[in-house]
């Protein structure tokens, strides 16, 4: 049962400084099944963030189509939750109000949305931080808030744009493990953008390799779950898959 499908997706935009049209994404087709975790990996400038922004509805696409449960995507919407590299938390709202923002937009009453927000904060081990403001938290904690804020809205698909790229290495590993745990508990559909090959393989059911605005190849990842770094660093299958993806990315 597929949820999200991209059909011959293309993006050209007008560069006023160059005075010409530039093509960022050519003819990308991709199907994502319900409950699947897909990583999209590629070097910077390969168009992966552009694709994510089009799925999220932040920028219009110039060719092809994006379908979510069979309906074309127009503009941003709550059925597609987004987790940003820069966290994009509202600095003027407490952690609780940040997580409760989506339900608030749906018109959920205050008491009910606080309950929802607390439930999701507990899922990420953040119950103690509910009344703090984002700037009072560490980067890792801020991004945990970013993830559960998107999840609390019950999106059909979760779009993650290099979410762990701006936290330190140790925290990143913890966050990756937590994300796989939460994914196993809730089974959201995830599209995860990254340039880190190990991260892509560690998290995903399937890794899509992107280069110069086209899909180069796809690799299925059948590693058993739960995945933890202590097991996988010495796992031959993980090493083999990572090496293969890395080779493709570097050749790209």
């Amino acid at each position: 049962m597929k949820t999200l499908s991209l059909r011959n997706l293309a993006k050209t935009y007008f560069d006023p400084y160059a005075g010409a049209h530039v093509t960022a994404v050519h003819d990308v087709s991709l199907d994502v099944q319900q409950g699947e975790f897909v990583s999209v990996v590629g070097p910077s400038g390969c168009g992966k963030t552009t694709i994510l922004n089009m799925i999220a509805g932040f920028i219009p696409y110039s060719g092809g189509e994006i379908l979510l449960d069979g309906k074309p995507v127009v503009g941003p919407g709550p059925e597609r939750g987004v987790v940003f590299q820069s966290f994009a938390l509202f600095p003027w709202k407490t952690v609780l109000d940040n997580v409760g923002f989506g339900p608030k937009m749906r018109g959920v009453p205050k008491a009910e949305r606080d309950r929802i927000a607390r439930e999701y904060l507990a899922l990420a081990g953040l119950s103690h931080a509910a009344n703090r403001y984002p700037n009072e938290l560490s980067g890792g904690m801020q991004q945990r808030v970013g993830v559960v804020r998107a999840l609390a809205n019950n999106p059909a698909v979760l779009l993650m744009d290099e979410p762990f790229a701006s936290v330190d290495a140790q925290t990143r590993m913890t966050l990756q493990e937590e994300l796989t745990r939460i994914w196993q508990e809730r089974r959201p559909t995830v599209v995860f953008i990254t340039h880190d090959v190990a991260e892509a393989v560690f998290l995903a059911n399937r890794v899509v390799v992107l280069s110069k605005g086209r899909i180069l190849d796809q690799v299925d990842v059948d590693l058993r779950r739960p995945r933890v770094w202590d097991d996988l660093v010495n796992d031959d299958e993980f090493k083999r898959l990572s090496a293969r993806v890395l080779q493709m990315v570097r050749a790209a």
Partner: peptide, 18 residues
């Protein structure tokens, strides 16, 4: 206001008024 923060609100279902 960073663009991502606006995008975040839009993707969480905020309309023009919100």
């Amino acid at each position: 206001i960073p663009h991502t923060v606006r995008n975040a609100a839009a993707s969480l279902g905020a309309g023009r008024w919100a």
